[in-house]
Write a protein that binds this DNA or RNA. Structure first.
Lengths: 123, 123
DNA sequence: TTCGGCGCTACACTATCAGTAGCACCAGTA
DNA sequence: TACTGGTGCTACTGATAGTGTAGCGCCGAA
């Protein structure tokens, strides 16, 4: 348990605090975006690729594996969907939607060019 | 605005949706952990290094820069602290603490070894 | 039996992060 | 005046994670 497994890259919470483990899991690229998109209901691999626009299939696959192993999503007949635990997580994620809008406005009011840091292509 | 700046790696939300921009920002390693730790009050650079245990100073510095540019933290006399916007974000992050405990329990009840994915050293 | 869409993999390239050393700066102190 | 120890931060190397693209094997429809 305390020993890094050979052949597996060491990437995990090291403090042992669950919250840090969660931040590590959700801090992987696209992880929160996938959960967000699955909240509309089950989605196929290709559909998720469409929602996440620029995600590469290899990373999508690896992220889906992470989230499945974490018990947040599951494979069903019509693709992937949130588990009960994943659904609860989404409920926590939901308020970020409104906050994001206020935040985006505050950033672009303050210095429109800085918004480039977060959207660098399209629009 | 739509053009990737030369010399700067392209990493940003590409859909233009604020929520995806937020997920991109918070999806960078240690970003949420830093905000979480700053919720106890202002902290110095070295203190944050201590809280985040294994973070390297170069990444800490770069993450602090990201968060400062995003208006979530600010530099004050006794180190870094959350801005009003950052404090609001923390309020959204807070419930994750309880959820994380339930989640950690469900993962380790189900298959204790799998918990290794999230904590690979120490404990 | 071809065709197209699907989930997914392989691989080369690039970006991000870890780990470590150490610099410039400042306060205390002797 | 130097000296010492602590601080914020930078510079580098090498490792890991993510991108972009091509394409495999499978399956259902025509």
């Amino acid at each position: 348990m305390a020993i890094p497994r050979p052949g597996k890259p060491v990437r995990g919470s090291q403090s042992g605090a669950p919250i840090m483990a969660v931040f590590d899991l959700l801090g992987r690229r696209w992880a929160m975006g996938i959960i967000w998109n699955l909240s509309r209901g089950a989605a196929s691999f290709r559909a998720l690729q469409g929602y996440c626009e620029t995600i590469s299939p290899s990373i999508l696959n690896s992220r889906l594996k992470d989230l499945r192993e974490a018990g947040l999503i599951e494979l069903v007949s019509d693709g992937y969907q949130l588990t009960a635990m994943g659904e609860k997580l989404f409920q926590l994620l939901k308020p970020f939607g409104d906050w994001a809008i206020h935040w985006a406005k505050s950033v672009s009011d303050d210095d429109p060019a800085r918004w480039d840091n977060y959207r660098t292509r399209k629009d």
